[in-house]
Amino acid sequence: MHNFNYHRAADVADASGKLTSLDDPKVLAGGMTLLPTLKNRLAAPSDLIDLAGIADLKGISVEGNEVVVRAMTPHAVVAASAEVQKALPALAQLAGNIGDPAVRHRGTIGGSVANSDPAADYPAGCVGLDATIVTNKRKIAADDFFLGLFETALEAGEVITSVRFKIPERACYMKFRHPASGYAVVGVMVAKYGAKARVAVTGAGPCVFRVAEMEAALEKSFAPASVADIKVSPEQLMGDIHCSAEYRAHLITVYARRAVEAMV
């Protein structure tokens, strides 16, 4: 680990100010990716701005047709929340299967979303559940938020404060874990909003994406058979020594169908 200056932000404005004024700062929002990166000397930020002390950034509420999870809420809290389990059980289930218990107690939704790791679970939750990413500056639709591999719409000094998930009629998240890392190789969130359907896939590509063809088919008929034969091209997908792009493409179809099966 290289040296850095550690700051415990007093509030979001303080964090945002430091983010714009310091040399090469990074937000610490749980640190489940950042800390291993630092330990392996793969990054050397000048300053870490820790959001852990900001009470306003923790907590869960159901507001109208939305589940609101504040940015520094750990995954384990989302998983165990009676409100989330009642209003949006698919989200509780997603959060409860992220990483391992240690990760679930330290990692936060804001940290996960801001990182846009291609193998993270929350991006599929956000896009599949038509979420809005709320920052100290604006509201960003999840569809517009995740731009690419570790790339989001966040601008300099912008800090995520909460994520607002639209409560669906039904939803289900299913994932295939990587044989080595345990991360999602394919994670599929399927959600039904009246006549509308959303299918969001994480893990398989460089960034979370929706499968329009599956959504259209489900909107015609919300049944497993509707997606069972829809293939995603492996060309846009990633591959590694354990799971080729072709295999990932195959798994997307299988897990989308299984998610729908679990919902009907």
Partner: peptide, 18 residues
């Protein structure tokens, strides 16, 4: 797994399946 140039691809538990 080594690649053709002798680089170890399975060099962490992210890639080596314990």
């Amino acid at each position: 797994v080594y690649d053709a140039s002798g680089q170890l691809l399975s060099a962490s538990y992210m890639d080596y399946g314990m």
